[in-house]
Amino acid sequence: MPDGAGLERQTPRLVAAREALAYHDVQRVRLARDMTALEAWNAVMLEPMPLIGLAFRIRDAVSARFGVKRIGGFTGRQKTQVAEGDMLDFFRVEGVTDRELVLTERDRHLDVMTTITTDPLAGGGCEMTITSSVVTHNLFGRLYMIPVGLAHPVIVKRMMRVLSRKGVGA
């Protein structure tokens, strides 16, 4: 096994079969300490990006005109435990184990699934993976995903950089 390689990487859940997805993004970061998927979520959400609140307010104002529910954005609230059916901000928890947190938002324009996994590394620490998958249902969903598809990987990458800066990353 190469130095620092994972013991065995999980296959993250997707909202639909890979070929049916309108959007799919996978990003990984090595973390200096091992943590559960919920601990990883809490660490990422601890410092919301400065303009993300404004982006969500704009999103809600525009989307509401097309009958899409308002989601409000991220609160930064920390949770010590969650169960299936609980809410983490606007996401519904669809699955949770120590190593996997499956979050969804389903609406008339699209279904989103974000899966956070933490896989232990042979040399200590873990690899956190954030996998986002989307199925669109209509023209508004497809148009919505144009700016979101461009912004989402940048946002996730920055969130992971914040973890590294705080000394959590390897």
Rank of each mutant, 00 (worst) to 15 (best):
M1L: 13
D3W: 06
D3L: 11
G4F: 02
G4Q: 06
G6M: 12
E8V: 13
R9D: 11
Q10H: 09
P12Q: 04
R13V: 03
L14E: 09
L14V: 05
L14M: 11
L14S: 10
L14K: 06
A16W: 01
A20G: 02
A22S: 15
D25W: 03
Q27C: 09
Q27R: 14
R30K: 07
L31V: 12
D34F: 03
E39H: 00
A40F: 13
N42D: 10
M45C: 05
M45P: 00
L46C: 07
L46P: 00
E47S: 10
P48L: 10
L51M: 14
A55K: 01
R57Y: 04
R57W: 06
R57T: 09
R59F: 10
R59E: 09
A61I: 04
A61Q: 06
V62C: 13
R65S: 12
R65P: 08
R70K: 15
I71K: 00
I71A: 08
G72Q: 11
R77W: 02
R77S: 14
Q78S: 13
K79F: 15
E84V: 15
R92C: 12
V93T: 07
E94C: 11
G95Q: 01
V96Y: 03
V96C: 12
V96G: 03
D98Q: 13
R99Q: 11
E100C: 10
L101Y: 06
V102C: 12
L103C: 10
T104K: 02
D107M: 08
L110F: 11
L110P: 01
V112K: 00
V112E: 02
V112A: 10
V112C: 07
T115I: 03
L121K: 03
L121S: 05
A122M: 09
G123F: 01
G123M: 05
G124E: 07
C126K: 01
T129D: 04
T129S: 15
S133E: 05
V135W: 04
N138S: 11
N138F: 06
F140V: 10
L143E: 00
L150N: 02
P153Y: 05
P153K: 00
I155A: 15
K157T: 10
K157I: 06
M159P: 00
V162S: 09
V162P: 00
S164L: 03
S164H: 08
K166V: 06
G167R: 02
G167A: 12
V168Y: 14
V168M: 13
G169C: 12
A170F: 06
A170T: 12
